[in-house]
Design a protein around this nucleic acid. Sequence first.
DNA 1: GCGATGATTGATACGAGGTATCACTGATGC
DNA 2: GCATCAGTGATACCTCGTATCAATCATCGC
Lengths: 143, 143
Amino acid sequence: MPALEAIEGALEARGYRVTPARRAVLQAILSRPEHFTAEEVMRRARAGRATVFRTVRLLCELGLLCRVLLEDGRLHYRLLGPRRHHHHLVCVECGRVQDLEECAVGGLVRELASATGYEIQGHWLEFYGRCLSCREPDQGGVR
Amino acid sequence: MPALEAIEGALEARGYRVTPARRAVLQAILSRPEHFTAEEVMRRARAGRATVFRTVRLLCELGLLCRVLLEDGRLHYRLLGPRRHHHHLVCVECGRVQDLEECAVGGLVRELASATGYEIQGHWLEFYGRCLSCREPDQGGVR
DNA sequence: GCGATGATTGATACGAGGTATCACTGATGC
DNA sequence: GCATCAGTGATACCTCGTATCAATCATCGC
Ligand SMILES: [Mn+2]
Ligand SMILES: [Mn+2]
Ligand SMILES: [Zn+2]
Ligand SMILES: [Zn+2]
């Protein structure tokens, strides 16, 4: 999880200004739990609606945020470490999100490309389930 | 692609009535291209907004429609043959959608489950690219 | 047939989540 | 100093739904 300065550095490095509005959005994001909606950021950042959405989009484009697609189709955002393209495992009970280390469908993409003739450019892949701690009561585990 | 009578039969078989409003929605769907939004159905079916959305949801639940997640997060719908759970390959240029024969991440799901302890209950998986015909101009192919 | 019951409908309001406009502000470059 | 352009935010607007609720329709027991 990058610190404020790291994110601001990444913005400046790409020619974007670090303005008060952007800093407000960044602070709101850093104060949020592991994943959040743009609306939640809105409520905490002293910045206009359009600016919040623009900033979130910008951070996604720069690879500083990743988008987490929930099972019901809602979109959340999440700070991204230095990681590249990857996918998520979302606990539908407690909301915990686990980044999956890498993209496990690379082989599948190649197979599909040769089977269908498509030039495959991207994909969505998200998994949903119940995490270990949410399952524990089930199992009548220790204690 | 099921015909009107087949869909109506499926509704009746599960205890749902085939009403004029539902028939109007079905006809609008059958007149649409391979995938469509609920809004497009709205514009063609003489039926109230709520009814259109309710009917589309019902058809999804009954397995008569499948949901196609576009790259930008929008949701389209598509008539489903007798197929089960599967995924899509969407051409981002012409919009063509190809149903993938089966779910190719079953093995991955099992691996993930044992690696993470999650009980994995579902997933989203959609691929985006350019289909063969949309690529052809690229390649200076035959003719 | 008759009334009770439950399914279905559509007008309408509401809500989330996001984009388009556009006049304005504030840095930057010269 | 002035032109230019990135950034801003109020606001209107849009899509894609869901909630409400009174009206209607079909069915069923009698
Ligand atoms: Mn992530
Ligand atoms: Mn399909
Ligand atoms: Zn959990
Ligand atoms: Zn195509």
